[in-house]
Design a protein around this nucleic acid. Structure first.
Length: 492
RNA sequence: CGGGGCGUAGCGCAGCCCGGUAGCGCACCUGCUUCGGGAGUAGGGGGUCGCUGGUUCAAAUCCAGUCGCCCCGACCA
């Protein structure tokens, strides 16, 4: 092995700098934008606030989407597609709902040159259009539960935008379900929350805190909103998904009624829930480093990139060996890319694919061909391993598993390190103006107190975490007793 | 939407103050030599200076407006 290390130009002792990317520590926001563009995840467009998701970024979204979609189908949900236009009168049926979304609705007022009799909202979310149809489809208790999901685009006229995190148009899934009882609706809301949590942690390797939103943060028109909060590399919180128990609010507004087994006509209970392309931003900000992206193996567009090393007998021996390695790994079910471009040097390719976050790199050169082996290098710590060809699939599998786990562990450790228990308001303020992160503190439950904290510290209540008791003593800001344990943070 | 900053080649920037032939680095194209951690060399291509209007013999440069992007807020997935 020592011989190998000498022969194969050891791991670089150079600092991990990529000239095209601003260091994370220097300017986190710039670092983020640099990665999105340089890794070709997305780009600006001629349309304000609207991004293009480029093929590499879209592949990442597709892989994520497919894995979540499988979980939703496995729990009895079916996909459908509803119109993107919502007549104004329909949107106005649920008062809180329209009030919450009105400021950011895009309106269609003309068809060609003809003014419309009633203007159409471009959906900012689909409760209104979907519930209007559910009122036709739900007649009997036998029709319930109704479990439908749609993958769609959404438009919200945001004032300030940021790649993936907040764009005028974005992609998401939105589930809309109807149930016979309050309990069944609550069970569904929590079932989805758990599906999201498992998806975030198992697939995206991003640990989350789940819990209830405060009244002021809950979805417009909901009874209650559950959320998943993740921590980004700069100590700010990102709402990664929400699951709403809508109670009977929408059923009453849209007249979704069914005749129950006791022959009584009853209003149904509904839920809605969604996650968006924002999660691609979360992947960048939770895992990336100064070398660029670091993608969890389960959703990475390429799990393995093969870099053949040119030499004297490149086309006769090394390239065929690289192709054969590609075929072998593809046959084993891995997502593999062979970078056989001759205009770039191996060193350039190493940096390039690290920037793009590929979990495992396989190098194969003249010396490897002679020895019947390849060099495997993992993205996170760049450890090299010299592996005989017949053991490569097993070794790749092990590396991907290990990487998936260690990425989660690292993010979990970071979130833990950046979470602080605070009981006095002065310390609260110092943390929020300094290192940020999550603060666990007692809260009296009063929204005025919540608003004051936000005005004074910029921190909001991200959630009231599930299964956690209120701490003894008073609210972190006022003298009233703490009713809840709350997670505070500055949020995206 | 309020405060601040920035728009010049694909990216990063200089030139602007003091108006007069649009430049640099990287990237890109071609040849040759290279290739195990961002190769060397010799050639080469690419920009009506965000947009609109004004001042002027003459505008990247001065003036006005407008659009976009970034940061800090308000709002939000």
């Amino acid at each position: 092995m020592a011989e190998n290390e000498d022969l194969y130009a050891a791991q670089s002792s150079e600092p991990d700098t990529v000239t095209e990317i601003t260091p994370k520590s220097e300017d986190f926001s710039r670092w983020y934008i640099d990665i999105v563009r340089r890794a070709e995840l997305g780009d600006y467009t001629p349309v304000r606030g609207c991004m293009v998701i480029r093929p590499y970024g879209y592949a990442l979204w597709e892989n994520s989407r497919d894995r979540l979609d499988a979980r939703l189908k496995a729990t009895g949900h079916q996909n459908a597609y509803f119109p993107m236009f919502i007549p104004e009168s329909l949107l106005k049926k649920e008062a809180e709902h329209v009030e919450g979304f009105a400021p950011e609705v895009a309106w269609v007022t003309h068809g060609g040159d003809e003014p419309l009799e009633e203007r159409l909202a471009v959906r900012p979310t689909s409760e209104a259009i979907i519930c209007s149809l559910y009122s036709k489809w739900v007649k009997s208790w036998r029709d319930l539960p109704l479990l439908i999901n749609q993958w769609a685009n959404i438009v919200r006229w945001e004032k300030v935008t940021k790649f993936f995190l907040r764009t005028l148009e974005f992609l998401w899934q939105e589930g809309h379900t109807v149930h016979a009882t309050e309990q069944e609706a609550e069970e569904e809301t929590l079932r989805i929350l758990e599906i999201y949590r498992d998806f975030m942690e198992s697939d995206l390797a991003i640990p989350v805190i789940t819990g209830l939103k405060s009244e002021s943060e809950k979805f417009a028109g909901a009874l209650r909103t559950y959320t998943l909060e993740a921590m980004m590399g700069d100590g700010r919180a990102l709402q990664a998904g929400t699951s709403h128990n809508l109670g009977q609010n929408f059923a009453k507004a849209f007249n979704i009624r069914f005749e129950d087994q006791d022959q009584q006509l009853k209003y149904a209970w509904t839920t809605s829930w969604g996650v968006t392309t924002r999660l691609m931003g979360a992947l960048i900000m939770a895992h990336g480093d100064d070398k660029g992206l670091m993608l969890p193996p389960k959703v990475a567009p390429y799990q393995v990139v093969i870099v053949p090393i040119p030499g004297k007998h490149f086309t006769e021996s090394v390239l065929p060996a690289a192709r054969s390695l590609q075929d072998m790994l593809t046959a084993e079910g891995f997502r593999v890319h062979l970078d056989a471009r001759e205009e770039y040097t191996p060193g350039w390719k190493y940096n390039e694919w690290e920037l793009r976050g590929v979990p495992v790199r396989a190098e194969i050169g003249p010396r490897d061909v002679g020895k019947g082996q390849a060099v495997l290098v993992r993205r996170d710590n760049r450890e090299k391993a010299f592996v005989p060809l017949d053991q490569i699939p097993d070794e790749v599998r092990a590396l991907l598993d290990s990487l998936q786990q260690s990425m989660y562990d690292r993010a979990k450790q970071f979130m833990g390190d950046q979470t602080r228990q605070v009981s006095d308001y002065e310390t609260f303020g110092e943390i929020m103006s300094g290192p940020r992160g999550f603060i666990e503190a007692g809260w009296c439950g009063d929204s005025d107190c919540e608003n004051t904290i936000q005005e004074e510290t910029r921190a909001t209540i991200r959630c009231l975490p599930s299964g956690r008791e209120a701490p003894a003593g008073s609210c972190v800001r006022c003298d009233n007793p703490a009713k809840h344990l709350a997670i505070f943070a500055k949020a995206y």
